[in-house]
Computed example of a mutant assay.
Amino acid sequence: MSELLAQIAECIEFGKINKAAPFPPQMKGQDGADELTKQAIEEGVIAQDILTEGLMVGMQKVGVKFRENKVFVPQVLMSAKAMSTAMVHLKPFFLSGEVKQKGTFIIGTVEGDLHDIGKNLVSMMVEGNGWKVVDLGTDVKAEQFVAAMKEHENAFVGLSALLTTTMVNMEKITKAIKEELPNAKVAVGGAPVTADFCAKIGADAYSADPQGLVEYLNSQVA
C-alpha cells in the first residue's frame, strides 16, 4: 500500500498526469496520478492517506525544488495538473467530510493588477498541501476580500501583486481587512514585495516563494 502512495507522490513530483501523457519522458507509458489514485481508492486505501501521504508529499517536493531553482514554472504547472487530476477522485470524500482539510486560504491579485500566474502557482501549491483554496481572481478590491473572509470564518488571506504601482494597494486592503477583522492573518507576495514592505503595511507574513507560504500556513494550524 505504501508503495502505491509513493508512486502517486512520484507522479505529482514529476508531473505525470495519466498513462497517455508523454511528459515526463522517463515515465512514458506508465500509469499516472489519475490511474494510480483511482486504483488506490478501489483497493481501499483511506482517502485521507492518499492526500497526506501521496499528493501532499509530491507537492512538497516540487515546492522545495522550485524554491531552490531546480525546477521552473512549467514543471510546477505540470505537477499541479497531475494533482488536480488526482483530486477529482478525492472530491466525494471532501464533500462527505471523510477527508479533512487543514483550513481555508483566500487569495486574490490586488486591485488594479491583472497578473495571475504567481497567484495561480500559489493556489495550486496551497491546495496540494491540504488546504481549501478560495480564489477571488485578479483586480480584487478590499471589500471583496473582507466579504470573502466574513463568509469563510477563520480563513487566512493572501494578497498578490506583480507591479510596484499596484503593490501600494496591498496596504489599503490589509488595513481594511484588519479594521473589520482584527485577528485576520494576511500574507503578501509577488515580485516587488519584500519582508520590509510586509512589516511596514502591517501584514502578517511574506514569502518569496510558494513553499514558504505553505510552511507559514502549516505552522499556524500545527
Rank of each mutant, 00 (worst) to 15 (best):
residue 13 E to Y: 09
residue 215 E to T: 14
residue 107 I to R: 02
residue 54 G to K: 00
residue 103 G to R: 04
residue 156 F to D: 10
residue 50 I to A: 08
residue 173 I to R: 02
residue 136 L to T: 15
residue 44 G to C: 13
residue 113 D to V: 02
residue 31 D to F: 08
residue 163 L to W: 06
residue 148 A to V: 03
residue 1 M to F: 07
residue 26 Q to D: 15
residue 99 V to Y: 10
residue 113 D to E: 11
residue 69 N to L: 13
residue 89 H to K: 03
residue 145 F to R: 10
residue 201 I to T: 08
residue 115 H to K: 00
residue 204 D to L: 03
residue 141 K to I: 01
residue 121 L to M: 12
residue 218 N to I: 01
residue 139 D to R: 01
residue 189 G to P: 11
residue 145 F to D: 15
residue 2 S to G: 10
residue 74 P to W: 04
residue 148 A to R: 05
residue 156 F to S: 15
residue 96 S to T: 12
residue 192 P to K: 01
residue 109 T to D: 10
residue 220 Q to G: 13
residue 96 S to R: 07
residue 35 E to T: 07
residue 216 Y to L: 07
residue 141 K to V: 09
residue 194 T to S: 15
residue 214 V to F: 07
residue 62 V to D: 05
residue 150 K to D: 14
residue 9 A to H: 06
residue 58 G to Q: 05
residue 23 F to V: 10
residue 61 K to Q: 14
residue 6 A to F: 07
residue 61 K to M: 04
residue 52 T to N: 10
residue 112 G to Q: 05
residue 218 N to Q: 11
residue 215 E to F: 04
residue 212 G to L: 01
residue 16 K to C: 12
residue 12 I to V: 09
residue 118 G to M: 02
residue 221 V to P: 04
residue 50 I to V: 08
residue 209 D to M: 05
residue 26 Q to V: 11
residue 124 M to Q: 09
residue 99 V to Q: 05
residue 59 M to Y: 03
residue 121 L to E: 03
residue 11 C to W: 03
residue 207 S to G: 12
residue 10 E to C: 07
residue 16 K to T: 05
residue 187 A to R: 00
residue 173 I to A: 13
residue 222 A to Q: 09
residue 76 V to N: 04
residue 156 F to I: 09
residue 32 G to Q: 08
residue 179 E to Y: 02
residue 44 G to V: 08
residue 204 D to R: 09
residue 23 F to K: 04
residue 194 T to M: 13
